[in-house]
């Protein structure tokens, strides 16, 4: 075999190619964002469940909620503290966005950072953008 040099050159190009995203973004890591809470949300202090839990598990809660509301017509969530919540993402003042009324400041902050694109808002109607 006298293709040694070709093979090695090929391998190097391959390795560079597949590691491209890593060294291209090196040193450019964006700071971890903090979602901005509305005044109404700040006053509440605690969401449906404690903050840390919501941070990690909100998508599971939403999944359980949607299953329950759509398929079971059970729409009231009673949290551990005994508080009742209307299980709704977007309808009414007591829904998720009733409190977290800015999608841009709340949802998008982390979702953009983590590069996840949930498509809730292609159907659910997002709150109107705040006038500035």
């Amino acid at each position: 075999m006298n293709d040694k040099s070709k093979i090695i050159a090929g391998l190097i190009i391959f390795v560079i190619f597949i590691t491209f995203p890593f060294w291209y973004n090196m040193g450019k890591a964006a700071p971890v964002p903090e979602p901005k809470l509305t005044d109404k949300a700040k006053l509440e202090k605690e969401c449906v469940e404690p903050k840390q839990f919501m941070k990690v598990e909100h998508m599971q809660i939403l999944d359980v909620w949607r299953e329950s509301v759509v398929r079971n017509a059970s729409r009231t969530y009673v949290s551990k503290t005994g508080k009742k919540f209307n299980m709704s993402l977007a309808s009414g003042d007591d829904s998720c966005i009733g409190c977290h009324s800015s999608k841009v400041d709340f949802c998008d902050k982390c979702h953009n950072y983590a590069s996840v694109r949930p498509y809730c808002w292609t159907c659910h109607i997002e709150p109107p953008k705040e006038k500035k």
Binding site: E49, F53, E57, Q60, I61, V64, E67, R71, N72, K80
Partner: peptide, 19 residues
Amino acid sequence: ENSRRSFLKIAGISALGLG
């Protein structure tokens, strides 16, 4: 089936975070 399913999910959430 639905209620069992959501029960399991809620149970799962509880197990994950809060007891």
